[in-house]
């Protein structure tokens, strides 16, 4: 909208928006990491603590756990986008999910 006139500098409004986007992104990535870490700890590390090191099984479990968490993240995101797209398509119906 503003400050997109092909000029090199960006307007104050645009830079404010970018700043907020970046802040939000940091919060989101941090939150995602915390949730991955918590979930995978619960799922992969038994709480008997007989050894101080991650054993082979636990390490592999963590690798797969992180990978799968991202996969679920992507799948749910795609699904939500699909649903919100449908909701927007029949926009005359009030009180949608989004």
């Amino acid at each position: 909208m503003f400050g997109r006139g092909g000029n090199a500098g960006i307007s104050a409004q645009q830079s404010q928006a970018n700043l907020m986007m970046a802040e939000q992104e940091i919060e989101m990535v941090t939150d995602l990491f915390n949730r991955v870490s918590d979930s995978c700890l619960k799922k992969c590390i038994p709480d008997d603590y007989l050894e101080a090191d991650l054993n082979k099984g636990e390490s592999v479990c963590l690798d797969r756990c992180v990978s799968k968490f991202f996969e679920v993240n992507k799948k749910v995101g795609a699904k939500l986008q699909e649903i919100s797209g449908q909701n927007q398509a029949n926009a005359n119906r009030s009180g949608g999910l989004f």
Binding site: L32, F33, V36, S37, C40, L41, C44, I45, D47, Y49, L50, E51, A52, D53, L54, E58, S59, L62, D63, V66, S67, F70
Partner: peptide, 20 residues
């Protein structure tokens, strides 16, 4: 052991997280 293991857990998850 619990503390050691947790730190190793966090380190490994951090590496994989960065990649993903």
């Amino acid at each position: 052991r619990c503390t050691d293991k947790f730190m190793k857990h966090a380190e490994r998850v951090g590496q994989r997280f960065a990649e993903q």
